[in-house]
Design a protein around this nucleic acid. Structure first.
Length: 329
DNA sequence: ATAGCGCCCTGGTGGC
DNA sequence: TGCCACCAGGGCGCTA
């Protein structure tokens, strides 16, 4: 299940191999995976375009194309794959979109469950920050690495109580066919915008389980079921605790835990349980480092007690009842 | 506004 | 061995 580390790994593998590649032809086999515009326009618009830059925002992959600027947005959802291969290599099953490149290679979008979506935007249709992220965001820190020198920004060193730089509360409403979620994404978890104070603010007065809040992409962008469970374990916080009941030190610990687990997962090139592979078809190595996810009944790596599995926020949830007490301490 | 739930989709799994 | 109900879940839309 691609979450931030998996999407980031795909981004890196493809950016290294595909920047500057020219699209010869696009064929759409399954119309329903093209979110916007219609599949015919999608194919026509992309023919002849060059991959100029590869960015990421949350779980969205952002491919900037020239001339344009146009931005191809890809969301892999559960089982989507973007695979770069030579034209002679056999096509993977459930291939729904094929980008034939001028140099003889092919970029294929395959997805067993057809949950993944591809969207094409003209540059002006995206909020400035998203368009910027399509190629210029530093994916690990989440900071804009090569932002155009639009003048110094001296006095706005990010304060803890300031709104995160990458939150976009005033962005325009999404154009037709666009995924609404792309326009309401919270801060990147590895950026300074995701702080204990920000998280505390978003949890204020909320009775929803803390896990549900962390899964909400408007609160923080890029977390999914695996890394939320892992971060809560590292922070020693029960996933079902009411978000509004956490204390300031809990939020600080949680933010640190989220960052640590995501950094490690990026370093290990993501978690492969059954489906995920990177842009070259290689599995990730993070599974061996998971403390609770998928380890129900196995000994907790910290206390030795058995890892539990329940359902929280409608999701399979893994935690250690001893290391993550249900209430307070 | 918030929280919970059903829906999409299909391969893999477990029960009988 | 074969059949089938059931599960996995990200994001969205609906309901209360």
């Amino acid at each position: 299940m691609p979450e931030l580390p998996e999407v980031e790994t795909v981004r890196r593998t493809l950016a290294a191999a595909l920047t500057g590649a020219v699209i010869r032809r696009v064929s759409v086999r399954a119309r329903d995976v093209i979110g916007r515009p219609d599949p015919e326009t999608f194919a026509v618009e992309l023919a002849g375009a060059t991959f100029a830059a590869w960015g990421r925002r949350g779980k969205y992959l952002l491919l900037r194309l020239e001339p344009g600027p146009q931005v191809l947005v890809v969301h892999l959802r559960m089982t989507g794959r973007l695979l770069l291969a030579d034209r002679t290599e056999p096509e993977p099953p459930h291939t729904h979109v094929v980008f034939d490149l001028e140099d003889g290679r092919v970029l294929r979008f395959a997805d067993v469950r057809r949950f993944g979506r591809l969207y094409l935007f003209a540059g002006g249709e995206l909020p400035a920050r998203i368009a910027e992220a399509a190629g210029v965001v530093d994916a690990v820190t989440g900071t804009v690495a090569d932002a155009p020198p639009t003048g110094a920004r001296p006095a706005d060193a990010p304060r803890a109580d300031a709104p995160p730089a990458d939150a976009q509360p005033t962005d325009p409403s999404p154009p037709a066919g666009a995924p609404p979620g792309l326009f309401t994404l919270g801060p990147e978890p590895l950026s300074r915008g995701f702080s204990g104070r920000w998280l505390a603010g978003r949890c204020l007065g909320r009775r929803a389980p803390i896990k549900a809040v962390l899964l909400d992409q408007r609160v923080v962008a890029g977390l999914g079921n695996i890394y939320v469970d892992e971060a809560l374990f590292r922070a020693g916080i029960h996933p079902a605790r009411a978000a509004g009941d956490l204390r300031p030190e809990d939020f600080r610990r949680l933010v640190r835990a989220v960052r640590a687990v995501l950094r490690l997962a990026v370093k290990r090139r993501g978690t492969t349980l059954s489906d995920y592979v990177d842009g070259r078809g290689r599995p990730g190595q993070m599974r061996a480092h998971l403390a609770v996810y998928g380890r129900a009944g196995e000994p907790c790596r910290r206390c030795g007690g058995p890892v539990s599995r329940t359902r929280v926020a409608g999701r399979g949830t893994h935690f250690c009842p001893r290391c993550q007490p249900a209430a307070g301490d």
